[in-house]
């Protein structure tokens, strides 16, 4: 039930931001308010179960992400360490594009995360940061297989590959 309402509200917010400036009630016309509400209720009914599946055995519920403190942490992470690492990553890749110096390989790291959201966040962060690209995930242990463009050691720790990201992902999602 909670999943239904949360999905509907998120869909409603997206609808309202897409129709911003259409009328005079707030910034929206009465038609947009009504059709937005009806459509987001339909979306919530259909997609609520998919967006938050909180009945997985042994996994923590993904509704725990509703805590606003986690969103704040996420925002801080996005603007602070993530953007900085992303900028460094791009300069690094630019250097390799121009010089062509690569030493590729696929390594295995165990960040020790358990929630789906945490692993997704870490994998996406890894893909967007220096010389690393997540290829596959071992779903039981939560280990990630990472394609590293410049292999420094063949059996690295999670810290050697992606810096402080596992700590951040743990703080945000676990």
């Amino acid at each position: 039930m909670l999943a239904f309402f949360v999905t509907a509200i998120v869909a409603f917010i997206f609808y309202l931001s897409l129709t911003f400036g259409s009328g005079t009630i707030g910034a929206w016309s009465i038609e947009e308010w009504i059709s937005g509400a009806v459509l987001s209720l339909i979306v919530g009914a259909i997609a609520g179960r998919v967006a938050f599946d909180h009945k997985r055995q042994g996994k923590k519920s993904s509704l725990r992400m509703l805590n606003p403190l986690r969103w704040l942490l996420f925002l801080v992470y996005l603007i602070g360490p993530f953007l900085w690492a992303m900028a460094k990553a791009n300069l690094d890749v630019a250097y390799r594009v121009i010089t062509g110096k690569i030493r590729p390989g696929i390594v295995r790291i165990s960040p020790g995360l358990t929630t789906d959201f945490g692993i997704t966040l870490l994998a996406n962060s890894i893909t967007l940061t220096p010389g690393t690209l997540s290829v596959d995930v071992d779903e039981e242990s939560g280990d990630l297989f990472v394609h590293w463009i410049n292999v420094k050691e063949t059996d690295p720790s999670a810290k050697a590959v992606c810096g402080s990201f596992p700590d951040w992902a743990r703080r945000i999602a676990e």
Binding site: N90, V93, V97, P104, T127, L133, H147
Partner: peptide, 17 residues
């Protein structure tokens, strides 16, 4: 770049940024 994985590095990161 020589193969698909390294191409993905360049393509994904640089175009997203």
């Amino acid at each position: 770049f020589p193969d698909i994985y390294t191409r993905l590095h360049g393509a994904t990161k640089c175009t997203t940024f």
